[in-house]
Simulated scan of single mutants.
Amino acid sequence: MRRRRPSLAALAPALGTALTLGMALAVLAAGPALASSYRYWSFWDGGSGGGTWSYATTGPSLARPADGSVQGFRFAVSRDAGAEAARPRAAADFAAICGATPAAEGTKRVALVIDFGVPADAPAGEGPPQEGPRTACAQVAPQATAAEALASVAKPLRYNGAALLCAIAGYPQQGCGEPISSPQDTARAQTPDPRAAPAPSPAGPDSGTGPSVGLLAGIAAVAALAAAGVWQSRRRAR
């Protein structure tokens, strides 16, 4: 007996299901991670004034800088902590900041760089209180923490219930390490600042120079599911 081939109408449900699932997979894989950036004060260690910054491994309330140290704070929208976070835009130069402050017995000098960031990183309705970084020489007790040194020159400070530093010199007035979750905030946060160093170019197969990984995954899913639908329809038609 001659086998009857499945008609296009018979294959339509299987193909429609395959296309729908494939498109859903493509959207999920290719969609941007809108909550992958955070707006917060980052804390940096400038060591003994060598001019370079490294991301601090402890919070300012635990760090106890030695006499002659440089500590930095930067408010910015960053993808994560560490290498991706924005550094203070002034050099970690102890002599330039504390050179005019004489040493005193029973105290230590800690040079501070406080960078309020750029307007593009400010919360809605606010802006940095000054355009460039602020520097100050804190002369505090030998056992004082970086937070205590900061409080001596840049009050008021604001912390949340988890002891996260939320505001320096009252900025920002609201918010504390919140994720940037809306497309409008993400676009606003990514507005380039002409004074800032250019961000590194993205690397990898999903760098924007060709089809995204999500799109290719969706196409592959469509093809696989469509083939499965055709095979199943042919089995039923036998």
Rank of each mutant, 00 (worst) to 15 (best):
L21F: 05
G22L: 01
G22V: 08
G22T: 02
A24C: 00
L25K: 12
L25D: 09
A26K: 04
V27Q: 06
V27L: 12
A29N: 01
A29Q: 02
G31Q: 15
G31F: 15
P32F: 03
P32C: 03
A33P: 09
A33G: 14
L34F: 14
L34I: 07
L34G: 08
A35L: 08
S36R: 05
S36V: 02
Y38Q: 11
R39M: 12
R39D: 14
Y40T: 15
Y40W: 15
Y40V: 15
Y40L: 15
W41F: 12
W41H: 05
W41Y: 11
S42M: 11
S42W: 13
F43W: 03
F43E: 10
W44T: 00
W44P: 00
D45K: 00
G46S: 00
G47V: 01
G47M: 04
S48E: 12
G49E: 07
G50K: 08
G50N: 10
G50R: 04
G51E: 06
G51L: 02
W53Q: 03
W53Y: 00
S54A: 11
A56W: 03
A56C: 07
A56M: 01
T57I: 08
G59K: 09
S61C: 03
A66C: 04
D67M: 03
D67E: 02
G68R: 01
G68M: 03
S69D: 07
S69I: 02
S69T: 03
V70A: 06
V70I: 07
Q71S: 08
F73G: 08
F73E: 07
R74F: 00
A76L: 09
A76V: 11
V77T: 14
V77I: 10
S78P: 09
S78Y: 10
S78A: 15
R79Q: 14
R79E: 09
A81F: 15
E84Y: 10
A85R: 14
A86S: 07
P88S: 02
R89E: 07
R89L: 02
R89F: 01
A90P: 02
A91R: 11
A92V: 08
F94W: 14
F94P: 12
A95Q: 04
A95N: 03
A95K: 08
A96G: 02
G99V: 01
A100S: 15
T101H: 13
P102S: 08
P102M: 12
P102V: 10
A103M: 12
E105R: 15
E105N: 11
E105L: 12
G106M: 10
K108F: 11
R109T: 01
A111C: 05
A111K: 05
L112K: 01
L112F: 04
V113W: 04
V113I: 06
F116L: 03
G117N: 00
G117M: 06
G117R: 00
V118T: 14
P119E: 09
P119V: 07
D121I: 05
D121L: 09
P123H: 09
P123Y: 07
